[in-house]
Computed example of a mutant assay.
Amino acid sequence: MALSQPAPPDQPPSRPVPRVVSRALVWPAAAVGLGALLIHNSLAGSADPTPPAPPAAVAPPAAVASAKPQPNAPTRAARKGLSRSKPKRIVIPQIAVNAPFTRLSVGASGQLNAPPAKNPNLVGWYKDGASPGERGTSIVVGHVDTKTGPAVFVLLRTLRPGSKVDITRADGSVADFTVDSVETFSKASFPDARVYGNARTPQLRLITCGGNYNRRVHDYESNVVVFAHLDSIRRS
Rank of each mutant, 00 (worst) to 15 (best):
G197H: 10
R194I: 00
V195M: 02
A31I: 06
L155S: 13
S83Q: 15
F190K: 05
P61A: 01
P18T: 11
P150H: 07
F153I: 01
T102H: 08
G35Y: 08
P150N: 08
Q11G: 12
L43G: 01
A56N: 03
N214F: 05
Q11F: 15
R23Q: 14
V20S: 11
R19D: 09
F185A: 04
P55D: 07
Q5N: 12
G142E: 10
T146P: 01
D176T: 14
C209F: 04
P191W: 06
G110P: 08
S222K: 13
S173E: 03
A31M: 10
K80E: 15
S46I: 06
P55I: 05
P12K: 01
P13S: 09
T148F: 11
V217R: 14
P191Y: 07
I233W: 06
M1S: 11
P191E: 07
T146C: 02
V91L: 12
G210W: 01
R89F: 07
V165W: 00
V226P: 08
D219E: 04
P150A: 11
A188H: 02
A78N: 09
V26I: 05
G35R: 08
K187M: 11
A99R: 07
L104P: 12
P87Y: 05
F185H: 09
E183K: 15
V217D: 08
S163F: 03
G149P: 03
H40R: 08
P69I: 04
S189A: 13
R200F: 12
V165L: 02
A56K: 09
R103S: 15
L122A: 11
T208V: 03
P100L: 01
P13L: 06
Q70Y: 06
A188E: 14
R200W: 08
V140N: 09
G162R: 12
T148C: 00
A44C: 04
D176V: 15
W27N: 13
I95K: 06
K80Y: 08
P9S: 07
V224A: 07
G172K: 11
V225A: 09
K88S: 10
T184L: 10
W27C: 14
A175T: 02
A67M: 06
R23K: 12
G211A: 03
R79S: 13
F185M: 01
T75R: 09
M1N: 07
K86L: 13
A30D: 15
R89L: 03
V195R: 04
K86I: 12
Q70S: 14
L82Y: 12
P6L: 07
S138Q: 02
A47M: 00
L3Y: 10
A7W: 09
P18Q: 11
D231V: 01
A130H: 02
P12H: 05
S163A: 15
A62S: 07
G136A: 09
T137Q: 05
A63T: 13
S46E: 10
